[in-house]
Design a protein around this nucleic acid. Sequence first.
DNA 1: TATTAGCACTCTCCTGGAATGAGTGCTAAT
DNA 2: ATTAGCACTCATTCCAGGAGAGTGCTAATA
Lengths: 344, 344
Amino acid sequence: MGIDERKKEILRAIILDYIATAEPVGSRTIARKYGLGISPATIRNEMADLEEMGYLEQPHTSAGRIPSQRGYRYYVDRLMEPETPAEEEKLVIKTNYQAKVKSISEVIERTGQLVSQLTSYAALVSTPRMIGSAVRHVQLVAMGEGKAMVLVITEPERVQTHVIDVPENITGEDLETISRVLNAKIRGHSLNDIRITILREIYLELLRHKATVEYIMELIGDGEESTEERVYLGGVLNILNQPEFRNVEKMKTLLSLLDQEGLLSSLLAEQAEQEEGITVLIGDEFKCDLIQGCSLVSARYGVGGRAVGALAVLGPSRMDYARVTGLVDYLTRNLSRVLEKLYR
Amino acid sequence: MGIDERKKEILRAIILDYIATAEPVGSRTIARKYGLGISPATIRNEMADLEEMGYLEQPHTSAGRIPSQRGYRYYVDRLMEPETPAEEEKLVIKTNYQAKVKSISEVIERTGQLVSQLTSYAALVSTPRMIGSAVRHVQLVAMGEGKAMVLVITEPERVQTHVIDVPENITGEDLETISRVLNAKIRGHSLNDIRITILREIYLELLRHKATVEYIMELIGDGEESTEERVYLGGVLNILNQPEFRNVEKMKTLLSLLDQEGLLSSLLAEQAEQEEGITVLIGDEFKCDLIQGCSLVSARYGVGGRAVGALAVLGPSRMDYARVTGLVDYLTRNLSRVLEKLYR
DNA sequence: TATTAGCACTCTCCTGGAATGAGTGCTAAT
DNA sequence: ATTAGCACTCATTCCAGGAGAGTGCTAATA
């Protein structure tokens, strides 16, 4: 038994209605609200078929139908068109991005707020992960008692700080010298370049403090990997207003999920490695099955090969996929553009 | 009608029982569980008195009594002794603080986790606010296109960064010069000193870049006030397990409260300005009345006149005050000590 | 042959009343 | 002053019955 045109229409109608109302939808409703020109009885027959095929479910005998995971999947893959955001929404986004922004994290945060505000679901946005970003400046500052602070400023305006141990007998001037030499050699090169070619030259000039320099170089190199990828999380209150979380237990599992930043960040990291395009994860397609009944719409943003991150919307599986996918698409494009400017 | 010894005993018993069970407590329970040597009937009479005096409340006629705000207040002020933490707990705390810590924020975060873990309520810890902290190093780094980054490192290992506009025609070497002069003059002085005495000297040496230097000095000065006082918030999930939040609405108001970082930070800031000692805020004693039914136990920690912050436990008014106050006291002492070491 | 009207059936949800039980306040006895 | 006893109150639970929504099946219809 195939899924013919009429079945598609009915499936779409059911999903749309369920998305809107969060109530099981019956044959009568479909016949009345969506003018398909067929009677409830016919619709009932089709619904029975769709249920048999696994696209619909029935909470109990005398209730209407609700979409199954598979139903949503089919809808997202075949029935739905991403919806371009309304002009009004576009305007909100535009104005939000026009405001003068100073730091990357500010842009990320704003984006997250925007997403949660516009969707009334939860928003996840990861800070961009830098790739081969050039070093602007290196500075060592004595902190007393055999400690020094290493500052590494990379493009565009990222600052890493580390406190390291140095020989007790090293002087502030020594540190200044090291800084100067390091800067002269390093400045403008990408992190990758540094490790491979320049290391040797620096050693030669700074033989006296070999161990220290070695350590610093390690730190600078590490920066590449360990740019602590923070995740902006917003709109938690929003999503709690969704009827699926009226029940306290559901609410708590969701919250405990959102508490695990590591999990979220790995979810986003996965997306960031994808090619362009929007990914929709529905219900049990997640690796971790804590998120029963939730879906995630995510997309990657990026600045031409120099930094990438991901943006995602987390909501109940009963989510307005058309609207959300459209919005996510529009937003990632804008976000990429704004960042592009920041990186010059 | 005064509150005699026996009434005190009964009030204490009721509060202890209610804290333990979260159920209205009846005369029978008191007579059975707390050997006061008097009959339920007598207790009933006393309870009626206590209710009349405003220390107890009755949810409805045929239920037991629960403590009123005033009841808790009396308990905290007169009936309760802070409880020294159990040896086991002390051990947990000790070992937690013995681990090598690198940054202040790490200590703060750990403390927060500790608090929420040990109390099963929510923990708030503010990052310490520096007072007159000395400047270690100032560095200007060219960012291209008329922008430069100002780095200010203050004691102990705090880094402030600002991106500022500078004249287009300024060179990297100019910035280097400014940095050098600033450093020579500023290093080691507290922020207060700087503004008052040294400003003039610097101007003289750097007449060429007066505007820029002026701006930088302003930024350095601002740092004093604007050290963004972040608040570590932990154990939200903990507190949601308390029976008072079984109801979804209560849960949501609490969460929306905890979402407002500004509010929390002002709550803590108030405490940080207090003298030593533990403050207990019960129910409607809060400025904002969103927190109906909650209490806050807070204390200030500090490093001899150089930095202060506050630590607080937020829980339902039905909170184990004896345990919590004892713990908060113990923890702030330890935290102060650990920070003391970090500041040397 | 596909569609539809009609009808019996199922199941949830709501309502109201009765039973239960915890706890009180009052009165009279100790 | 304390306590035993008793009538009373009120929340909670349980159950039965009715309403309502929706289904599946069968027979009639185009």
